[in-house]
């Protein structure tokens, strides 16, 4: 397969952007990031693109390919209809620095405000804890996150309504779930999740799960279980009463 393909790429800074067409020859096995690099080398040396590992593990090359949030390094050209121009845009949820590069630093600020791990007293004299593998596996899924922020990008609460000040977003719910479900952690994040992190804004459209390149079941395994824990604490009077008499705890 060798073919000349048109790529329609966002160029510009801040609010001044336009889609510019570039043509390049593509071959078998190429990914979108290869084509972008080729365009950089051939016709647009000032094209800004963030990338690092080219293996889907660093989460740097997040963008929107034909309108869907994806990692450019993991999107094979063979999966795309190349008879039409291929659109490559930056993530819309974060401020644009230049071309395909956005400022994702807001995410790191949000992460800082999530309560850190507060381990219970060690089980052994050497300061270690005992955990069953099955209990480890549940939060383990969330550790696969590479912080590409595609889930944040696709979430309409941030993308359309810009509720960055009131909503932590799927990435941080995954992080909170990873800590909350850890058997040795004792911190309580439910009040923060209901309040400043705004988990109630999530309306479970599962777009975050759909775009996750690590295939983390964000909605079903992280967000909904957290929502249920929030219900336990704030919206279930009968359950609360039941817990008083049954000493049900986590």
């Amino acid at each position: 397969m060798s073919k000349t393909v048109t790529f329609r790429i966002t160029r510009g800074t801040g609010e001044k952007t336009e889609l510019v067409d570039y043509q390049t020859e593509v071959g078998e096995g190429m990914v979108v990031l290869d084509a972008v690099h080729q365009i950089q080398a051939e016709s647009a040396p000032d094209l800004a693109v963030r990338w690092n590992c080219k293996a889907g593990k660093c989460g740097s090359c997040s963008a929107e390919v034909n309108g869907m949030p994806r990692l450019m390094c993991m999107t094979r050209l063979g999966e795309i209809n190349l008879d039409e121009p291929v659109t490559i845009e930056p993530m819309r949820t974060f401020p644009l620095i230049k071309d395909l590069v956005t400022d994702v630093s807001w995410n790191y600020e949000v992460k800082k405000r999530i309560k850190k791990m507060k381990p219970r007293k060690p089980d052994n004299e050497d300061g270690s804890w005992l955990m069953d593998q099955e209990d480890v596996e549940r939060p383990q899924e969330f550790r696969k996150c590479i912080e590409c922020f595609l889930c944040q990008n696709v979430c309409h609460v941030l993308r359309d309504h810009k509720l960055h000040a009131e909503f932590a977003g799927p990435r941080h719910f995954v992080y909170a779930a990873q800590l909350e479900m850890n058997p040795i952690d004792t911190a309580d994040r439910l009040e923060d999740l209901k309040g400043p992190d705004g988990i109630g804004y999530c309306n479970i459209t599962k777009c975050c799960t759909k775009v996750c390149p690590e295939h983390i079941t964000i909605t079903d395994n992280a967000i909904i279980p957290l929502k249920e824990r929030v219900v336990d604490k704030f919206y279930d009077p009968i359950g609360k009463l039941f817990r008083v008499f049954s000493s049900r705890d986590s």
Binding site: E15, R92, P95, L96
Partner: peptide, 9 residues
């Protein structure tokens, strides 16, 4: 530098 967010589509 505070950069603007993309307008709502």
């Amino acid at each position: 530098t505070h950069l603007p967010l993309a307008p709502q589509r």
